[in-house]
Nucleic acid binder design. Sequence first.
DNA 1: GCCAAGCGTTGCATTTTAGGCAACGGAGCG
DNA 2: CGCTCCGTTGCCTAAAATGCAACGCTTGGC
Lengths: 309, 309
Amino acid sequence: MKHLVTFRVIEAIAQTGSIRSAAERLSQTPSAVQRRLQNYEEELGFPIFERTAKGVRLNSAGELVIQHIRETLADTERLNSRIADLAGMRRGHVSVGCSQALVPYFLPREIAAYGALHPNVTFESVVIEHEQAAELLESYTVDVVLVFNEKSVPDYDVRLVVPQRLMAIMAVDHPLARYDVLRLRQCYAYPVALPVRGFGGRALLEQALYGKTFAAPPSMESNSFEFLKAHVAMTDAITFQIEIGAPDGTEGAGIVSRCIDPRDVVGGMLYVGQRRARTLPVAASRFVEKVSRTLADAYGPAARRSGPG
Amino acid sequence: MKHLVTFRVIEAIAQTGSIRSAAERLSQTPSAVQRRLQNYEEELGFPIFERTAKGVRLNSAGELVIQHIRETLADTERLNSRIADLAGMRRGHVSVGCSQALVPYFLPREIAAYGALHPNVTFESVVIEHEQAAELLESYTVDVVLVFNEKSVPDYDVRLVVPQRLMAIMAVDHPLARYDVLRLRQCYAYPVALPVRGFGGRALLEQALYGKTFAAPPSMESNSFEFLKAHVAMTDAITFQIEIGAPDGTEGAGIVSRCIDPRDVVGGMLYVGQRRARTLPVAASRFVEKVSRTLADAYGPAARRSGPG
DNA sequence: GCCAAGCGTTGCATTTTAGGCAACGGAGCG
DNA sequence: CGCTCCGTTGCCTAAAATGCAACGCTTGGC
């Protein structure tokens, strides 16, 4: 969109923190970028960046401007999306921020299903921690978040909440694999391999183990769930994951998952959320609806909201 | 703002209904306007006007676009206003839609008081009927409405409601002028001069007179309250007005106003309102706050809401 | 204390874009 | 049938945007 180039330029400057690097990102010369900024500041009547030796930084007026720019860009995308929808083209782009647990099974499945119906919709997924969710929504970096959160109240518009139990994951020939439900104490008879702090299941587990006599330090820590799965497949160690991220037996990697007795762990919640007071582009909105339906069917809604189109 | 010229052009086309007249309003040639439109449609990928023999008309995509354009223009104004506010300049423009009764005394007084504090704020006032209020707010034609409404529930965001009694207006030497409170029956002993239907007081009165034996057709009707005032000053006729529009004795035009007994008329309500889900520019928002304070002090709030900034 | 590196900024030449002018083709109307 | 008003387009000129090269400045390392 031609009339938005200045906005795109200013956003690039704000993000990179310097005119030259913004120019590089935009494949332009510094002078072109600098002039766009200068012209805009002149029109506005105020400078929006303060110039430092190392680059530029938004001043308080600039904070207002960048917010307006992001709103405008998002609104424009929404307009395009609605018009495409009107013409039956079902186009658009959806940017999803999600917890790590959604990555291996759930999200790719959902996206694949949606993409099969609407091939012209493009996707982008970034793994985030739940503390970042509100911020990324606020800055329009992502349209939707799907995050696991063990306790706090989200600071964004929650469209769906579903409960999540904790699962133990182990090799298919593991002695505990013959039980359907496991007590935590049983698991801790074996070495445990845990995700690092920040991963969804970890916080649940620490909460549950607080004060338990059988609690022991993990024999293995990793920030890669792929690695943990491979590890437990080859040893008698046990790792944990919330149910949506646990292997469902369809992958044949020699591992199985078993539910932890609800008496041992209070489950956390999986949140589907979007920016407060934002009307999503059609593609994103439909995607959220589809995901919400899947989640509600699978886990039963703890709370639900029917938002505006 | 340079990057909004296309939007302004499109809005002009939409309003005038033809490219040539839009061009004339914008002091440009038809070809320039036509090219802007064409380029925008090309960028968008869809035509937004259907071409007819007499001009152009928005199609359904165009309806979405024009809505987006109006939102964007309003948002831009809000941004400018906030930045001016940040710089302590307190600039801006406020467009007020109000009922006729507000015109002679209340609104000019409020605007004058506000303008004395903030000389760089410009104003625009249009007299409207309450049925138009929601529509004018919706299309961003006015920022604020101050309307009298005898019954229905407003279809916009109400920031303040105050009750309004009905007043009788007569010459200062009228026989009834010696009473402080009048019964309707007393007034109808004299000829009555009424505003036309649509004016605030008229509907109240008709409601009150329904089924009354002393009801008589008005001896005079006019859509000019100025005329009615002059008329009653020179005859023994009586006219009516809600209290905010009634002369308060400061103007010395030989007329006085007396309250109608509340047993005879159910009072209507004066509404202060703005567009749903809109954050007003700073100047408009402050003006609304000031007006609301004045109204609440004068008539006591029937209901009140403290809106966001 | 100086010098190299990186920053924002500016004069100048070039390219790209927008605008005015005049003319064309088509639809409605008497 | 002809007149009028509409949107549209080719052509030319004016204006805006961009790239290039160079300037002045601050910072950080030697």
